[in-house]
Design a protein around this nucleic acid. Structure first.
Lengths: 247, 247
DNA sequence: TCGAGGCCTTGACCCAGATCAAATAGGACG
DNA sequence: CGTCCTATTTGATCTGGGTCAAGGCCTCGA
């Protein structure tokens, strides 16, 4: 097996950045250079990793845990604009400050690269720049996809959309199975889900109960979810999407 | 005045791409090369420029007119995910197909570059790649900003947000005035505004009437808008934002 | 000048989801 | 074990915005 084999991101070395930013054309010298500017950070659940407007001295990628990207209005209304899961990128290469609050939802470990050497390397190494552009385009697609969820879906469809995104993502990082039976732990509180979906936590709770009563999901405790039939869930989400896009 | 002077995008040559993609470090050879692969396309109001999934043979930038980026669910619910105004980029360099429908709202002229030579050039020219990354990050920020509008704002705030975005944008392309009195034409029908805001066209119409009654805006006909006090409008939009970000 | 077809506005009524208010269920910790 | 604390569920009621319906107002073409 070569080191360029098509693997799930997290399977490519301990540090996902290897896959996500450089692995598609990785090269021993580049990896050595990256090693030299790499370090780890960890955060406890609830800790704010970055405040909107903070200077960022690093770019990084999530190794474990869950974090959220949120915006808040002065009256306290908040909207989550992104969910950071393992292998996601944190920080905006080419920008010098954070645009949103980044909050650790669970304990988080991040693999960081010092910003200016990383950017120098990016400027010298077209395929890293290209990879970053691709990743940013992926995020843009995800954000736009989410605009449809926020603007046009009902509460039930919103919940189903969120569950299917998390389920699909977990399935693709794990076994690569995106249909049939899927089991995962919800990495978010009801309130965080509400902030992601533009709902109240009461509505989130009610809709989850409804999906459980209708057999779309099975709950074990409050967080452990089993989806007996992924197709059914995606149907509830209103996605015409055929389940795909692994890699 | 050097050709690197800080100008509004549309002021830098007839073709906005010069400023938006390359002008910050432009160079005679590069511009000549770009000229060689450049051509223009025009579309009539109502025409679909690209369907989601279409192959794109070009990357381009809007010269005049207005176009929209939309997603549709199979039952017909639609959500606009972006508004393309002069100087905006069309098409996703590094991707080979469109992700959304692109529809001309008014007559449109676009400046296009043939895709593969443009991408080759991008791979060779780090500052073009960097500029494109910046532009993509700007779009990502705009999309995330819009998620707050869609998820957490009331109908009145949504209308005020849309009006202030258009007003600010027009003002910055024109006179560079972003406070005080602003006059512009709405480039969208009520229905398109509704699709952008996740509302119905009736609600859009009612809220516009309400803002007019309250003196926040003055309407001359259905499309011509005067904002007597930009600060008041931004206040209605719920933006804590101080009006800025020209450049 | 008239009529048709798009837009847009306005009214009446309804309902999905918000709001307000308890009650319940787990943990963590002594 | 009991106690506190937080997350969650559930109920009752309210309301912003959706839905359905009826005109009004342009513009364009005959």
């Amino acid at each position: 097996m070569t080191k360029h084999a098509k693997l799930a991101p997290s399977a490519c070395g301990e540090c996902p950045i290897r896959h996500r930013a450089v692995c598609s054309k990785c090269d021993a010298d580049e990896l050595t250079e990256l090693e030299a500017i790499k370090y780890y950070r960890s955060y406890e659940a609830g800790q704010t990793i970055l405040w909107a407007g903070d200077q960022m001295g690093f770019v990084g990628s999530m190794v474990s845990g869950v974090a959220t990207l949120t915006q808040t209005m002065e009256d306290g209304r908040t909207q989550m604009v992104g969910l950071l899961l393992p292998s996601d990128f944190v920080g905006r290469p080419g920008r010098d400050s954070a645009a949103y609050n980044v909050v650790a939802t669970s304990d988080v470990v991040m693999c960081c690269f010092r910003k200016s050497p990383f950017e120098d390397m990016m400027a010298r190494t077209p395929h890293i720049a290209h990879r970053l552009l691709q990743m940013t385009l992926d995020e843009l697609d995800a954000a736009r996809e989410w605009m449809l969820v926020l603007g046009r879906k009902t509460a039930r469809e919103k919940i189903a959309s969120l569950l299917s995104i998390i389920a699909r993502r977990d399935a693709s990082l794990g076994l690569g199975v995106a249909t049939g039976r899927v089991v995962f732990d919800l990495p978010l509180t009801r309130e965080a889900m509400a902030d992601y979906l533009g709902l109240t936590l009461e509505t989130v709770s009610r809709q989850i109960s409804a999906l459980r009563k209708d057999g779309v999901i099975v709950l074990d405790g409050k967080r452990h979810v089993t989806v007996p039939d992924m197709d059914r869930l995606m149907d509830e989400a209103g996605d015409d999407n055929d389940g795909g896009m692994l890699i």
